[in-house]
Design a protein around this nucleic acid. Structure first.
Lengths: 159, 159
DNA sequence: CTCCTCTGGATTGATATCAAACCATTATCG
DNA sequence: CGATAATGGTTTGATATCAATCCAGAGGAG
């Protein structure tokens, strides 16, 4: 998703133009990174699919689709689709929620956990190479600012 | 496109885990920002469509689709599709290249230029609000590092 | 000049994404 | 209790994106 601005800013007050460049860079980085990771992922996993497996493996499964959609910042419709694909691959199981007839629960299978581990292993070479361009100290400088920006966007979205 | 990692890192050497978080943040920011911009764009313009109009307006039109695809970092197939939509909206015209029978040229129309200006005007309120979370100085700190990362990803991609 | 290759575009099929509309179930309120 | 509202999931239709494939025109090697 290439973001606004060919690579420079537009006819706008200086501060806004700078922000436009920021969003532009972020868009290009996201596109390049997504592509780089998906090309090495096992089982044809996409980043969206991996994100679900990784969340379940690290922070616990047995969540409802609605909870996962909130966490991953996608609509429920989007999640329905991706969960369906993971289910076909037998990486998760979707079981009805006993307490709430509307709801379901997402359960990680053993194969799903293995796929997630394999995906992380496959991504390692990219990350190791990336360290040359982005040494630890630099990432630590970047992260807090980006987290602030993300939080602001998230808050501004709903307001 | 939510990026790797629920929001934390994975079972990996520390530096790689940090980088994973970086890509994760960037993915979420991109998703939120794309959404925020597209909701206010006039004429149902998408970011991809705006990027083409903006490039033509700022850096000159009359380029071939192949050149634009390289500049915008998308495949030619993707560009074919988006150019088709812009053409339907009468924001560009696609004319045959006189010198090369295979090639075409993308020309910005007057309506296209107006749509691009209107899109920038529509994005201004978002950018102005964003300045609160991201003051000028902070953006200036971020940009060089992100540009480095983008350049590295671009170089690593082709190698 | 003729073949063979390269390059420019278009097409196809898959995935992700959103908004909007939809149905089922639960929760709330009068 | 019964009607209304809120919530959980799904579906549909649009767009963007990629890889792979395909065709047509241009360029080079004999």
């Amino acid at each position: 998703m290439p973001e606004p601005g060919g690579s420079e800013a537009a006819a706008a007050p200086d501060d806004e133009a700078l922000l436009l460049r920021l969003f532009n860079e972020i868009g290009i980085i996201n596109q390049l990174a997504t592509n780089a990771f998906e090309r090495v992922m096992p089982h044809g996993l996409t980043i969206a699919q991996f994100a679900i497996l990784n969340h379940c493996a690290r922070l616990g499964d047995n969540k409802t689709p609605a909870q996962l959609a909130d966490i991953l910042q996608v609509t429920r419709g989007t999640l329905t689709s991706t969960l369906g694909r993971l289910s076909e691959k037998r990486f998760i199981r979707i079981v009805p929620d006993e307490e709430d007839g509307r709801s379901k629960r997402v359960v990680l299978t053993a194969a799903g956990r293995r796929a997630r581990d394999a995906a992380i292993a496959a991504a390692m070479p990219i990350l190791s190479r990336a360290r040359d361009a982005m040494p630890r100290a630099r990432v630590q400088d970047l992260l807090p600012a980006l987290e602030d920006l993300r939080r602001w966007l998230d808050a501004d979205r709903t307001s």
